[in-house]
Amino acid sequence: MSALSGRIAFVTGGCGGIGRAICTRFAREGAQVVAADLAPWPDAPEAVRVIAHDVTSEAAAVAAMEGIARQWGRLDILVNAAGIEIEKTVEETTLEEWNRIFAINVTGMFLSAKHALPLMRKAVTAERTASIINFGSYDGFIADPGLAAYCATKGAVHALTRAMACDHGPEGIRVNAICPGYVDTPMLQSFFTGEGSGGGGKTIDQLQQAVREVHPIRRYGTPEDVANLVTWLASDEARYASGQLWVLDGGLTAQVQQMRL
């Protein structure tokens, strides 16, 4: 018996680095998956249907849920993985950029959840809960330099996660956030090559090695590491887990900043 046998899952950002790993694993565990993303995924697994989806559009959220209602009549799992980052301080960030990152990282989550909740209620039985998994970040707890608006959106995600857990727990819907640290994705590579990394004259390879060395586990996370935890949180094994922020960062934030002593 696979962990997600027969479950219906909706994954925003499902064609991104982490999103693909989640959708692939969900499909392997027996779920039917809708990967909603602006980006394509030509060779997606058979159990993954890719739909072109803008998370900032309420009409898109309504249409996506109508499609799921028609085909399956319920939704067991919602993963809100869509997100962007902007490598700027507050002063450098334009109002347009600020509004755009909040629209995708926070409002998108609100819209998906708002229109998914009625379908998720239909998935709840005496034996089975429904599960919402939001993408927060360790940056919702502590700050990376030059990522001001991104950090602020992740703080909002964490607060929204707790609030939704309180409101919808009595209906059998669990809500958690997963807070990855450094995960090897295109977004991370972009961070290393961008101005936000504060490279200090190091090559990208030197910078990456230095970052690995600061992790107690001496490596970055992989998208599969993240998918492992998302799968657990979506499964019946996690039926008592709700309202929590699950940090998965190789021990990075278990320590104080590493002084050059």
């Binding site: 490596r219 590491d225 190789g250 934030t253 320590q255």
Partner: peptide, 14 residues
């Protein structure tokens, strides 16, 4: 859980 370390995972039904 190969990437999970140094964390305090709360399991309290919210």
């Amino acid at each position: 859980a190969g990437f999970a370390t140094g964390q305090l995972f709360t399991l309290d039904g919210g």
